[in-house]
Amino acid sequence: LQLFIKTLTGKTSTVEMEPSDTIENLKAKIQDKEGIPPDQQRLIFAGKQLEDGRTLSDYNIQKESTLHLVL
């Protein structure tokens, strides 16, 4: 599924993920695209901070969801 990652600067990146992927996997993919180390990334979806060990489906993240990346 395609996700949009929006940064505080207003920049939006697109990443392709599976519902079974963990937040950790997602942060690794963001690191590949943006060069931001996972330990500096905080991802927010629906007002919640996402935890590394959980999966996208745990948070009911659907295709074309927008996640907010806070550093």
Score class of each variant (00 low, 15 high):
residue 3 L to P: 00
residue 13 S to T: 15
residue 59 Y to T: 01
residue 33 K to F: 09
residue 49 Q to Y: 14
residue 11 K to R: 11
residue 40 Q to Y: 09
residue 26 L to G: 00
residue 6 K to D: 04
residue 55 T to D: 02
residue 15 V to Y: 15
residue 65 S to K: 04
residue 57 S to F: 09
residue 54 R to D: 05
residue 43 L to P: 02
residue 53 G to V: 07
residue 56 L to W: 02
residue 2 Q to P: 07
residue 41 Q to I: 13
residue 68 H to N: 07
residue 36 I to K: 03
residue 60 N to Y: 06
residue 57 S to Y: 08
residue 21 D to R: 03
residue 47 G to F: 05
residue 57 S to R: 12
residue 59 Y to S: 03
residue 50 L to Q: 00
residue 67 L to H: 01
residue 48 K to W: 08
residue 24 E to L: 14
residue 15 V to L: 12
residue 43 L to T: 00
residue 70 V to I: 14
residue 66 T to K: 04
residue 10 G to L: 04
residue 69 L to T: 01
residue 70 V to Q: 08
residue 61 I to W: 03
residue 17 M to E: 00
residue 14 T to Y: 12
residue 2 Q to W: 11
residue 17 M to K: 01
residue 16 E to N: 11
residue 68 H to R: 07
residue 3 L to D: 01
residue 56 L to R: 00
residue 66 T to M: 07
residue 26 L to N: 01
residue 10 G to C: 05
residue 12 T to G: 06
residue 27 K to V: 02
residue 43 L to E: 01
residue 2 Q to S: 10
residue 32 D to S: 12
residue 48 K to C: 07
residue 68 H to A: 06
residue 67 L to C: 01
residue 55 T to S: 09
residue 62 Q to V: 14
residue 10 G to D: 04
residue 20 S to K: 08
residue 32 D to E: 14
residue 51 E to K: 08
residue 39 D to V: 08
residue 34 E to D: 09
residue 63 K to N: 15
residue 22 T to A: 03
residue 1 L to W: 10
residue 44 I to P: 00
residue 53 G to W: 14
residue 54 R to W: 10
residue 71 L to I: 13
residue 62 Q to A: 10
residue 3 L to G: 00
residue 24 E to M: 13
residue 2 Q to D: 04
residue 23 I to A: 01
residue 61 I to C: 01
residue 30 I to N: 01
residue 54 R to M: 13
residue 47 G to R: 03
residue 30 I to R: 00
residue 16 E to A: 10
residue 42 R to H: 13
residue 62 Q to C: 05
residue 1 L to F: 14
residue 56 L to M: 05
residue 7 T to F: 15
residue 66 T to R: 04
residue 24 E to V: 07
residue 19 P to G: 07
residue 10 G to R: 03
residue 37 P to R: 08
residue 1 L to A: 04
residue 5 I to G: 00
residue 36 I to N: 03
residue 50 L to C: 02
residue 33 K to N: 09
residue 26 L to E: 02
residue 28 A to L: 15
residue 62 Q to R: 09
residue 12 T to H: 06
residue 3 L to I: 13
